[in-house]
């Protein structure tokens, strides 16, 4: 059983709503909650999402992650199976991406 001692703000679905409440430790726990153990490859994607968000103003889509962070789409599907864009956003403490592509 993992315990988060701090209070965090989330939307009704569980996505963090405060950018600054996110920490590396929290990411590990969020990932564990959806059955993902974070590897260096996961971190590369998450770090990109975190860095991109404040400047871009919205959560990067899969395409943006693959073209700008250089992580192939196929690998993103392997790292975050099923719904990679949403899962990545969740672990990175960001809103779901709203872009279509």
């Amino acid at each position: 059983m993992t315990t988060i001692h701090r209070e965090i703000h989330t939307d009704a679905e569980g996505f963090l709503t405060e950018y600054d409440e996110w920490t590396d430790d929290l990411a590990v726990q969020l990932a564990a909650g959806i059955g993902i153990e974070l590897s260096d490859e996961h971190w590369k994607a998450i770090r990109f999402l975190r860095e991109d968000y404040p400047t871009h103003g919205e959560t990067a889509t899969l395409r943006r992650v693959s073209t700008l962070a250089g992580i192939p789409v196929k690998q993103l599907f392997a790292l975050f199976p099923g719904k990679p864009a949403k899962k990545m956003a969740y672990v990175a403490g960001l809103p779901k991406p709203r872009g279509c592509v």
Binding site: T3, I4, D11, A12, E13, G14, T17, L30, G33, I34
Partner: peptide, 12 residues
């Protein structure tokens, strides 16, 4: 919404 434990996990 404020969450302490247990964490709300989105239904993917």
């Amino acid at each position: 919404m404020t969450t302490t434990m247990p964490l709300t996990v989105p239904n993917f």
